[in-house]
């Protein structure tokens, strides 16, 4: 008697998705446009997919596309490890595996008729871009919209053309700053937190969404709180190693939080104590 059973399409199986377009963003960062496995992949801003490269491995990557255009799956990726480097070598027509979307979302509902303050550092703009798309296509849901973005150098700025276009709009404020003002840079130089104190949002009603390296989020959240934004309305995206994406493998724990299942997005009021403990 064969007792082997077909267990059905499991959450653990990557589904093939074909690359339709590759956009080089910076020296180490690129954007992949993919045909979603079922023709479309509905997601909420802030959610991520597990991307699989044949024989190399799998990594969690946030979706950087427009939630109102789920027929194109867009991921912006920084090449830092074996899998992301393999992804960088791919060209249109190549196929990657996709599992997802997983994780919770930036609380765009919370932003209803509030000032929206998006604070991004480096690659952290990618998971926040769906929030910006959402805010622009549901513009009346928000009061003022701010995008405050910091990078290492001017050549690390992502989505430059889009930022320029957003900057030209009258219904949103976009401010950029870099840590290293190299030759030819005529924008702001300094950490991203300096943009917070200069932005004239209404702190008592603002909702802030912060994404970047942990230390950057820590300081940005603190600056926002010092400027009067309630800790419950400052959101950060936490990061730990993610393997399964669905709460089964345990790797992504940060203190008592299981990030892939309950996060990765948390209000600062909850994240603050997680930030405070070393090696949690």
């Amino acid at each position: 008697m064969s007792a082997a059973v077909d267990i059905g399409l499991a959450p653990m199986l990557p589904r093939p998705a074909r690359i339709t377009r590759v956009v080089k963003e910076t020296a180490d960062t690129f954007t992949l446009h993919l045909e979603p496995p079922d023709g479309k992949l509905a997601f909420m801003p802030g959610q991520f997919n597990m991307l699989y490269v044949f024989g190399v491995g799998e990594v969690p990557i946030s979706i950087s596309g427009d939630p109102d255009a789920p027929e194109v799956l867009v991921h912006t990726i920084r090449a830092v490890g074996a899998v992301t480097k393999a992804l960088m070598a791919m060209v249109p027509g190549d196929v990657v595996g996709v599992r997802g979307p997983y994780g919770n979302a930036w609380p765009v509902g919370e932003g209803m008729r509030r000032d929206l303050v998006v604070v991004a550092g480096g690659i952290g703009l990618a998971p926040l871009r769906p929030v910006i798309y959402h805010a622009l296509s549901h513009r009346a849901d928000f009061d003022r919209v701010y995008v405050l973005y910091g990078t290492r150098t001017p050549s690390d700025i992502l989505f430059e053309e889009e930022l320029r276009a957003w900057r030209a709009r009258f219904d949103m404020e976009v401010e950029l700053t870099v840590d290293r003002g190299l030759a030819g840079w005529s924008g702001r130089t300094g950490v991203v937190t300096t943009l917070i104190e200069r932005a004239d949002f209404a702190p008592e009603s603002a909702v802030a969404m912060v994404c970047g390296p942990e230390v950057m989020m820590r300081f940005a959240a603190r600056e926002l709180a010092q400027n009067g934004v309630e800790e419950e309305r400052i959101f950060v995206s936490l990061e730990r190693k993610m393997k399964c994406g669905v709460g089964l493998c345990g790797n992504c724990q940060l203190g008592p939080e299981l990030l892939c299942r309950d996060g990765p997005i948390y209000p600062y009021s909850r994240a603050r104590r997680l930030f405070a403990v070393r090696e949690l």
Binding site: Y52, G55, V56, G57, E58, K243, L248, G250, N251
Partner: peptide
């Protein structure tokens, strides 16, 4: 229950 997942060729 923690597990790791390795992709091997």
């Amino acid at each position: 229950f923690c597990s790791s997942m390795d992709d091997v060729t």
